[in-house]
Computed example of a mutant assay.
Amino acid sequence: MKKHKGLLLFSLGLMVALSACGGDGGTTEDDGDVGTDGGVEESTEEKGEIVIGRNNWAENIAVSNMWKILLEEEGYEVDIQSMDKAPVWLGISRGELDIAPEVWLPNTDESYNDQYGDDLDMREMWYEGTELGFAVPEYMDIDSIEELNDMADEFDGQIVGIEEGAALTDLARDAIDEYDLDLDLVTSSDPAMNAEFMQAYNNEEPIVVTLWSPHWLFADYDIKYLEDPKNVFGDPDDIYYMTREGFAEDHPEVVEWMDNWMMDDESLGDLMATINDLDDPYEGAKEWIEENRDMVDEWMAE
């Protein structure tokens, strides 16, 4: 097992005490993202409130808390709202949310972009080259999705997935149909999937999960994606952020900072690993910022 921070295998998640979003797709205030201090103790003059909408994926939790802290340092009051992906897009398009830090294009979020893209502002790319699909531990003697039926009994006839409503969940069902797999997709949540994977891995038991890169599991465990010869899961995406219409005019300095934002496997993996080590998204992001102040100062330069 690999146990070190800052390394992610190139490859669309966070084992913290966060429960999954409610199935009603409603908006909830995500108190679990905020540290016990409730915010930055010293800030400049208040510049108003910014509402960030995020779904329950590790990298989204990580960068949402990172930007919460950075914007609080600049005098903004920042509220993180946790919800499923569809309500994030809807909230941005209606102007009810200000920023959504994670959009996968051109493939994974294509349907959402087609539906809502005309009513929002798609901003700059901040991560290049994602990956997603079915993944297994490296110790397993299997390399392709086409081999899954031969090992269906070893997997207890199931693939461990994440939330309903996630694009990855829909793609997983497409793959089951396309490859005519004799396995059922068991949906749960990202934290629940992580827990099942870690338990199986630590016991060297067989397991197949839906997974994406960037994800902190790749920093701590030897994992491989199963080959997808039919390319059901599609080609790699890049990650962008989006804002409501008019946000750039209301807060030009914020979009300037966020347009400067760029992360790679090492920096994003280190951020997620720090959060996972501290078991606290806010405190972990704060520690990472202090350890990478030169990098974030470049983003915040005017």
Rank of each mutant, 00 (worst) to 15 (best):
Y221W: 13
L18M: 12
E131N: 11
G246D: 11
T187Y: 00
I99Q: 13
A248N: 10
D238S: 15
M66S: 03
F197T: 02
T210N: 06
H215W: 07
E59V: 00
E163M: 03
E302D: 13
L226N: 05
V78I: 02
S11E: 08
E146C: 02
T36Q: 09
A152R: 13
V78S: 03
I162M: 03
R123L: 04
A248Y: 01
D118K: 14
V186G: 02
E74Q: 15
M242H: 02
G117E: 05
V34I: 13
T274G: 11
R173T: 00
I159H: 12
E77S: 13
N276S: 14
A167M: 11
Y139L: 11
E245F: 00
G157C: 04
A248R: 14
D150F: 00
D119R: 09
G39T: 02
T36K: 12
M1E: 09
K230A: 13
V160G: 04
D297W: 01
N194V: 14
L132I: 03
V78A: 04
E291G: 14
P137T: 06
Y282Q: 03
L183E: 06
K68L: 03
D228P: 13
Y76R: 10
A285E: 07
D279T: 01
M263W: 08
T44C: 09
N231E: 14
N56C: 05
